[in-house]
């Protein structure tokens, strides 16, 4: 909790401690968390620092779809389910990810590596169907590309594990 408190305090110091900065702070706190979410403890600290109620902080964190108050995987795969991706086979892309990861949309893999979600249009309609994985966008997807994408992330993570 202390470590978390220090981290959050330094984020707030950088962004500012007025209530209008709440969304920017929440985004940054989530980005720095290993599990891609904003914990209850983090919300408590933020609400105290910004002098707003905890319910207000929770309300905002749960309103915006990019923010999560539940633990997520290190890689959050967001599948676009808006009309342009739908027209170019978005539903199949969802199935490819579900099959290869063994989870359905809304779930997280047991190893905590991947979460699968839907998202609204991500503005990559010329490369539909597309997904967003953390901050990166991948387009023109098909079965092979989905498999290669998941493989490359898994391999990258294995390399990281050896370094410990």
């Amino acid at each position: 909790m202390n470590c978390l408190k220090n981290d959050i305090e330094s984020i707030i110091e950088k962004i500012g401690n007025t209530p209008d900065k709440l969304i920017e702070i929440l985004i940054e706190v989530q980005r720095q968390s290993e599990e891609n979410y904003i914990s209850k403890d983090a919300l408590k600290i933020i609400s105290k620092e910004l002098k707003i109620s905890l319910s207000k902080a929770y309300g905002v964190a749960s309103f915006y779809s990019m923010l999560s108050t539940k633990k997520r995987g290190r890689y959050v795969i967001q599948i676009c389910n808006s009309a342009p991706c739908y027209m170019n086979g978005g539903k199949q892309v969802k199935k490819y990810f579900e099959d290869i990861l063994g989870i359905t949309v809304g779930e997280m893999t047991d190893d905590g590596l991947f979460s699968l979600e839907f998202t609204g249009c991500i503005g990559t309609c010329d490369k539909a169907p597309a997904v967003k994985i953390n901050d990166k966008v991948y387009g023109n997807l098909n079965k092979e590309k989905v498999e290669a994408l998941v493989d490359s992330i898994r391999k990258e993570e294995e390399v990281c594990d050896f370094s410990f």
Partner: peptide, 8 residues
């Protein structure tokens, strides 16, 4: 510059 967090 301000940013949203995913709300149409």
């Amino acid at each position: 510059v301000r940013t949203g967090a995913g709300a149409y």
